[in-house]
Amino acid sequence: MIEFENEQTNVEQKVDNSANTLLDKEEFKNPENIAFSCRNVDLYYDYGEKHSLKNINIDILKNKVTAFIGPSGCGKSTLLRCFDRMNDLIDGCKVTGDIKYMGQDINEINTIYLRTKVGMVFQQPNPFPMSIRNNICYGPRCQGIKNKDTLNKIVEQSLKDSALYDEVSDRLDASGLSLSGGQQQRLCIARTIAMSPDVILMDEPTSALDPIATLKIEELIKELKKKYTIIIVTHNMQQAARISDYTAFFMLGELVEFNETEEFFAHPRDKRSEDYITGRFG
């Protein structure tokens, strides 16, 4: 442990893990396969006082599930929020470096357009205090879709896609808050799908749920990855191993290692990843 801390103070000066995080593989060479790419991304909170992300270099593949794991406060949720620019809402937060979405700098894309293309599911299930139908219609309505038939189709399709349709089809006008926790979280996913995004960001979507609801959400994620790019932040290593194709391991604001999930758990290249996986800390 002491050894490890020394190591940390040494790398505090300059972090360069790009050798461990940028993969030299066929899929990553074609720019059309890449949904997000980050180069030298640094993020500061509290007007520069807190350095929360240090020199992040990572590529996220399209139509794959990428999991971000790491101990609490390591910056994995922060990086996730960079992708749909939710960090803009926080006072005193500054992002430097390049983040590109489909090859375009995200600062040049209109935020509202970006957020319709990059959906987000939060840690706590947070349906709006309205009916199930209105919860799902909220996003499309904000984009100006008013036709009732179109909206009904969207509601049906997104409920089916989020595996909630059978459970709620007979009470679409009941309050979204009347559902159970797991159903609420799937409603939040349905709400996100209703915008027909390309990417779905999930910020620990199962940490507030019981094991059975978690299982359902995981099955749903496996189903969703056929259509969408999914980035999921999780505390649970087993969950990352179960559902993700690629895994990124974060530690104290730096991206330590990024690899295919199987390889990452079988042969971690960095000692810190190995320690974390084997449960020596964290």
Partner: peptide, 18 residues
């Protein structure tokens, strides 16, 4: 008003006014 509700709305692509 629950902050997470506001965040959810913004993350869905609603403008501030909406």
């Amino acid at each position: 008003v629950d902050k997470s509700m506001i965040n959810a709305s913004i993350a869905l692509g609603a403008s501030n006014a909406q």
